[in-house]
């Protein structure tokens, strides 16, 4: 679904992405891991078109994305921090995103799932951080997309909502959707990810399945495997 070739990006003197190839497998959940500053966010933003790479090419469904915006119809993106215009009501925010997308979202089941009904007519500034994050989930999943990109999706969610989110991801995966997820929560990765991408200093250090990772580093625990990688490269 996504092909990345020799992608490089610098911010000023800081080289964040140092040139690598990457392709995202269809119908799988891929977790992007790596320490802070390894280029996770830049990679995701490059795919979304928020960041324009200096060199290299990104193709989405076999078409280059440079200076295009229509392809984002095929992507559901969930940002890490859920901050919205304070004086809009939740229902209005949903309407806004629907307007922008030009299609009506399937919200009913999601509202039920995350118990958002009492908040629909509240202004966003009256909502707690957890509720805002639920709204964030809703905005992401109310459209049917082949690809979902989730940036630290668990932050701020209560345990019940987290379970609901995992269920939702599984259900979507069962429908054949592809996921790209960044997270710091290793248990979540172990639980749902099919493939791992480990970024280190702007390069892909490892890309493969969970098992391959364990084997190559002779550890039975993901956290330890990662700690080992980091120690080796310190």
């Amino acid at each position: 679904m996504i092909e990345i070739k020799e992608i490089k990006k610098s911010f000023g003197r800081l080289e964040v992405l140092k040139g690598f190839d990457f392709s995202l497998s269809d119908g799988k959940i891929t977790a992007v891991l790596g320490p802070n500053g390894s280029g996770k966010t830049t990679l995701i933003k490059s795919i979304l078109g928020l960041v324009v790479p200096d060199t290299g090419e990104i193709r989405f469904q076999d078409k280059p994305i440079k200076n295009k915006w229509e392809y984002r119809n095929q992507i559901g993106y969930m940002p890490q921090i859920a901050r919205f215009p304070e004086n809009l009501r939740v229902a209005e925010l949903i309407k806004l995103i629907e307007d922008v997308r030009g299609v009506a979202g399937k919200t009913e089941r999601l509202i039920e799932m995350f118990e958002l009904a009492p908040f629909l007519n509240k202004k966003l500034r009256q909502l707690s951080g957890g509720t805002r994050q639920k709204v964030n989930v809703l905005l992401t999943f109310m459209f049917d997309c082949p690809l979902y990109i989730l940036d630290e999706p668990t932050s701020g969610l209560d345990p019940i909502a987290l379970i609901r989110l995992k269920d939702l991801i599984s259900a979507k995966k069962a429908e054949g959707k592809t996921f790209l997820i960044t997270t710091h929560i290793m248990s979540l990765v172990e639980e749902i990810a099919d493939e791992l991408v480990f970024l280190l200093e702007g390069k892909i250090y490892f890309h493969g399945t969970f098992e391959e990772m364990m084997q190559s580093h002779k550890e039975d625990n993901l956290e330890r495997a990662i700690a080992k990688i980091l120690e080796e490269n310190a």
Partner: peptide, 11 residues
């Protein structure tokens, strides 16, 4: 943050 959300939308 909201701008980032909008930027990820198809417009």
């Amino acid at each position: 943050e909201f701008i980032e959300l909008l930027l990820a939308q198809p417009i």
